[in-house]
Write a protein that binds this DNA or RNA. Structure first.
Lengths: 270, 270
DNA sequence: TTGCTCCTCACGTCACGTGAGGTGGC
DNA sequence: TTGCTCCTCACGTCACGTGAGGTGGC
């Protein structure tokens, strides 16, 4: 017979661990002194304990160890197979994290500070009242004037139709052969009843996987955010499958530093 | 300004998470209503929150995120490098676990049940009073008679010298050209003052890395335990660097099922 | 008799999830 | 006025480590 300390020393664990296993019913002492509460173990329990510790060191939870302890070998086999799958998944997840850490460090080397702002998510479902206009190209110098010219009018016409405009959303199509870009300018309208008119279309943006970055401040600098986002996407092993969406989360004035625009680029695994 | 629910939706986290970050001082609302306690966030805090979540998803603890939040970029860089090292270590550890799971599953296929009993550890420091005898080979049929013949006498002579014998320990040397094996038969004597005599030597076994398995029952079957242990060692990428040690943890009678003998094989990475 | 071992609570860890019980805003 | 949101506790999670406070055995 062994005292708790002797068994602990043989197995190189703490007495506290053995008390814990006793409490869980995982390894109950062969005898317990009724007066003093002293635990007494048999030597064959060292073998039991070793099995418990071996499974524990494989990362198996104590509840699952208890579950296979008195079960047929089949159970043990199944549990080990499960653990194999879990471990493979954990390794994958950590390797993915490792890749992302490397990407952030690369971005830091280049002085880019935004890589940590990028989020991959599914876009929110959006119902939009929008107009289509053609710009002579991308970039704020081409798009900006379009906004100034058409957005106030759109807002006014929605109000006239008793529709509360929500957030402002712009999205783009690929340029045609001459470089002209079809731009959709719209406001979220939720589920308010509205069918559009001969100029205003009502559309739902498909819910897709997007990489998203936040742009703050004047829209003139939005191409920096855009460039950083594209770089992040390439480094992360995605490819862009659609043109960008820009969601204006907050807008004070054209040059206000409190402006916040979310830039979304639909992506897929490269 | 955003309510807690709005910010939570934008960032796809729970309000509870935001309250938690508030409590930790990690992301404190721009305003808190003094009467109702309602939290109000500014939109620029969404960018802060995204950075926090990005680091969290890399497995960085919230305390460390807080530590780099207002620190110079150098801190962030250092923290990410540290995380790189930690992640690599975690992956290594999980891959090692994966290998061991595979070894156990293999052993189960072959019907061996003991692989989970094997432990790698450093041997305990042992001071031994022992005699050297020559056996005509390994195996219980060669070693057993030696035990029967010499062990009782050794015990008696130690008692006569006022030395309390501890656990019985046998260890072996490599066989010579004719297959003769030098066997050391001894008892642990701790630090009791004793220098031996012309037959009994006092020795300290070097503390080394060993693979250890427990044998239960009659010593006749100890070769099964031995075989399983050797197989485990090979499958696990170790090699045997010295002959075995056998430590008798419990001994009732020659054929008692409560006998427990620990078999240790000194190992090194293959 | 003095150390050493043993005992039973019970808090702390990490990042929240999940009620309970109650109130404020549209 | 009714739902929806928000609030503050406070327990539970996982496998013990770490005291606190006290007693038993050599």
């Amino acid at each position: 017979m062994l005292s708790i300390g002797e068994l602990a020393r043989l197995a190189q664990v703490s007495p506290r661990t053995l008390r814990h296993y006793d409490q869980l019913g995982l390894l109950v002492p062969a005898q317990v002194d009724e007066v003093t509460g002293y635990r007494r173990y048999e030597l064959r329990q060292l073998a039991e304990l070793r099995r418990i510790l071996a499974l524990r060191d494989l990362g198996v939870g104590l509840d699952r160890i208890a579950a296979v302890a008195d079960a047929p070998v089949e159970e043990l086999r199944g549990m080990l197979r499960l653990r194999e799958v879990e471990l493979a998944a954990a390794i994958d997840a950590d390797q993915e994290r490792l890749r992302r850490v490397a990407i952030h460090l690369d971005a830091l080397e280049r002085g880019e500070l935004m890589s940590l702002d990028v989020v991959v998510k599914r876009s929110d479902p959006v119902r939009l009242a929008s107009i289509d206009r053609v710009a002579p190209g991308y970039g704020n110098e081409n798009i900006g004037p379009l906004f100034d010219e058409h957005v106030p009018g759109l807002r006014a016409r929605l109000a006239a139709a008793d529709v509360q405009p929500g957030r402002f959303v712009a999205h783009y199509e690929w340029p045609d052969d001459e470089g002209n870009v079809l731009v959709h300018l719209g406001f979220e309208i939720g589920e308010q009843p509205f069918d559009g008119d001969d100029d205003i279309a009502v559309e739902r943006l498909p819910v897709v996987e997007v990489a998203s970055a936040l742009h703050r401040g004047a829209p003139v600098d939005i191409s920096d955010t855009f460039t950083g986002l594209v770089r992040w996407i390439e480094a992360s092993g995605y490819r862009i499958v659609e043109r960008s969406r820009e969601i204006t989360l907050e807008w004070a004035a054209d040059d206000s530093p409190t402006n916040v625009i979310e830039v979304q680029l639909p992506i897929a695994a490269a």
